[in-house]
Design a protein around this nucleic acid. Structure first.
Lengths: 157, 157
DNA sequence: CAGGATCCCTAAGGATACTG
DNA sequence: CAGTATCCTTAGGGATCCTG
């Protein structure tokens, strides 16, 4: 990737918290938060399952689940089982589902660049093949890393 | 996204650090680390630029730059300017560049789901349009969030 | 300019126990 | 099952100063 635009005053905006990546990291940038989101994408919905599967303390889970809910990534939804009292479960909102490319991107990167278990896969329900993430422009071209430029846009005010 | 496979013993593998996402988060899962990687993708190479543009303390920058270097995401490369003594700069390795889908994915998600400045863009050098990330299977199908299944693969040993 | 060394300090997270 | 409450510990990071 290369910079075709100098971005001289980048220092101003990048360090004052206006970068979208910075905001995103503020929400899902911690290990517990991201792993909870991973679990949510795996289909986990109940508190105790989050706790045991992610391997964090209940208090930590409660804190982050609440934060993710307030941030609009998860939603508490009551459900009712036969004869049991109503409970809440945490399900992905559209914004939470929209994080899937990041989750899968991290997963795919981890598989490629760290050693370890690759006994779990994300696959396409339709054809059964493994999924990955591709960078693509709005015109539909596949974009290689060194075909990406960073640029400042004129503010539309 | 849905689970077509029960993944009953998921609890065993997911909490013991063998998940690729967990490993990836161990490397780039902290705010400073990810922001340093962001800066690297923006084209930043020098220590002081990292410090000022990310807005972190030099010690923090040094720590994480070293960790990222040891993890193989960055590489120290000596460079020489006229009349000045040689210095090192941090450049992305292939593994670091390979993280670009995640960086762009976070960026795009942040633009969509957080309010704030969208005065910076990632664009395709070839055609000039904005880039985004797409989930796709190896057969080339675009994959929607609820077309993704998680499954256990039989270990190939 | 590119860090290393120190000090300090707070917030995050684990462990454990308890409650509706 | 779904949390809350408490305690405790540590690593992370800011600030400051120093060095090749």
């Amino acid at each position: 990737m290369q910079l075709r635009t100098p971005l001289d005053d980048r220092s101003r905006w990048s360090s004052i918290g206006r970068c979208p990546i910075e905001k995103a990291m503020g929400l899902v940038g911690s290990r517990p938060a991201m792993l909870l989101m991973r679990e949510a994408h795996y289909g986990t919905r109940r508190f105790d399952d989050f706790v045991t599967r992610v391997g964090i303390a209940p208090a930590t889970a409660a804190t982050h689940l609440r934060a993710l809910t307030e941030a609009g990534l998860l939603e508490r939804r009551p459900y009712q089982e036969e004869g049991v009292r109503a409970r809440d479960e945490y399900v992905l909102t559209p914004a939470g589902e929209d994080l899937m490319p990041v989750v899968i991107g991290l997963f795919a990167w981890g598989v490629r660049h760290t050693d370890g278990a690759d006994d779990l896969q994300f696959a396409h329900a339709g054809c059964g093949r493994v999924v990955d993430v591709r960078v693509e422009c709005t015109a539909g071209h596949e974009v290689a890393p060194d075909d990406v430029v960073v640029r400042l846009r004129r503010r539309a005010r």
